[in-house]
Computed example of a mutant assay.
Amino acid sequence: MTAGADRAGELRDRPVALPVRSSEVAFRGHVWDVRNERFVLDGQEITRHFVDHTGAVAVLVVDEAERVLLINQYRHPVRLRDWELPAGLLDVPGEDPLASAKRELEEEADLAAADWWVLQDLLTSPGGSDEGIRVFLARGPSPVETDYVREHEEADIEVRWVALDEAVEAVRRGDIANATTVSALLAAAVSRAAGWRDLRPADAPWPTRSAGPRATGHPGHVPDEHDRGD
């Protein structure tokens, strides 16, 4: 039975360990690289380029009035100021994803939160990137002071509290298109309808099928002499 064949059983993503013939950095970028890999699928050797991503975290904050925190900033590749969640790369070697999420919330929204859960784990574009992003749901927000200085696109971030239902309606209208934000808002609406009982603990293991933090190593990743020392 081939790796792509249909199988009856539980509806979930399944890890597949294929022979990787070579793996090298084809282009080194400012934020992330493009990797060139040759692997074997069904006896055929295939070459693919993909974004070699550090992994990321995002935070959906919900307050006592069932409002969610959204931020608005400029994103040059799409030439938009889009509505997003506070988020950031897992680019500190060995840092716990929850610690990263707490830091990003402080830096981008000047907030801390009392209670944390895992809302969802996403693969943002599995055909072209190995990025895995963990979305946390945080409650009990409170303001904090930080000496972090926002620069570049972050310098003029707009922060807004929006009723969850209003945010979901904006998704339905097509007015919010950021993939992580769309997915998190819809997941939060479903979780709220279930009384928030389906949330996972904040320290739940990162699924092996996700890229996860670079420090843990990507499934099938073959380091080469061009890899960073992180």
Rank of each mutant, 00 (worst) to 15 (best):
T180N: 02
S100K: 06
A188R: 00
E24G: 13
R197L: 08
W196H: 05
P93V: 05
T47G: 10
L137N: 02
H226C: 04
D6T: 06
S100F: 06
D230Y: 01
H226V: 00
L123F: 06
R209F: 12
I46E: 05
W196N: 04
V135P: 04
W196G: 03
E106F: 12
R35W: 07
A177W: 04
P205A: 07
H152M: 13
T208V: 14
A163E: 11
E154P: 00
L122Q: 08
P15Q: 07
N178H: 03
S142I: 00
L137K: 01
A112W: 12
G132V: 07
T124L: 14
R35F: 05
D121S: 13
E108K: 15
I157L: 15
L70T: 01
V51F: 14
H53C: 09
W32M: 12
V40Q: 13
D230R: 01
A155E: 15
T2V: 08
D110Y: 12
V222F: 02
V34S: 04
F39A: 09
G195K: 04
V149W: 01
L60I: 04
L122R: 06
V20E: 05
G229Q: 06
D203Q: 13
S142T: 08
T2N: 08
V171E: 02
G132K: 10
V118Y: 07
A101P: 11
D42A: 15
D198L: 10
S129F: 05
E24H: 14
V57K: 05
A58V: 04
P126I: 03
V20K: 06
I133V: 12
S129P: 02
D130K: 01
H53K: 07
A99W: 09
V40Y: 11
F27V: 14
M1R: 02
V68M: 00
A177H: 05
S125W: 15
E10G: 03
A170F: 06
P77M: 02
A202K: 10
P126G: 09
H218S: 13
S142F: 09
R67L: 03
F50P: 11
E107F: 10
V92M: 03
E10C: 11
R35G: 00
Q120G: 08
Q120M: 14
D33T: 15
D96R: 09
D110Q: 11
S22V: 05
V57M: 08
E225C: 03
E95V: 14
